[in-house]
């Protein structure tokens, strides 16, 4: 089936979930072949857990893992003294379909390779 399902989740939809729930929700969808776009980012602990869960779920034949991309934005502090980058969007998808990704600091362009079921990435 040559189609790609994309799920967009607002930060509100995630805030009430535990890290474990978040991670398993993401992995479940991505393992299913879906692309998940999240408003905001994952915490370092969640990211580590996401990688760990992904590693457990890799089944060599069908699921080779995930790709994660983030789009950052400036967060200006209260008095505008320091500028810090925060994650605005997180894009997580199956590694074998996220083919070409162009990334600049404020721009991501992605070509999903949905025809190819065989996992072929670098």
């Amino acid at each position: 089936m040559n189609s790609l399902k994309m799920d967009f989740l607002s930060s509100d939809a995630l805030i009430s979930r535990s890290s474990m729930e978040k991670v398993s929700m993401i992995v479940e969808r991505v393992k299913n072949g879906d692309l998940v776009v999240i408003e905001g980012g994952l915490s370092p602990e969640e990211e580590a857990e996401l990688i760990e869960t992904t590693m457990r779920e890799i089944d060599i034949e069908n699921f080779v893992g995930i790709d994660i991309y983030t789009l950052e934005k400036d967060k200006v502090s209260l008095f505008g003294l320091s500028k810090k980058k925060i994650v605005g969007l997180t894009i997580i998808g199956p590694a074998n379909i996220m083919k070409t990704v162009k990334k600049k600091s404020n721009f991501i362009s992605m070509i999903a390779n949905i025809g190819d079921t065989g996992a072929s990435m670098r």
């Binding site: 990688i51 992904t54 080779v64």
Partner: peptide
């Protein structure tokens, strides 16, 4: 190697 993906084909 601290990857988020592993493809045996590699």
């Amino acid at each position: 190697g601290i990857a988020t993906k592993i493809d045996y084909k590699n």
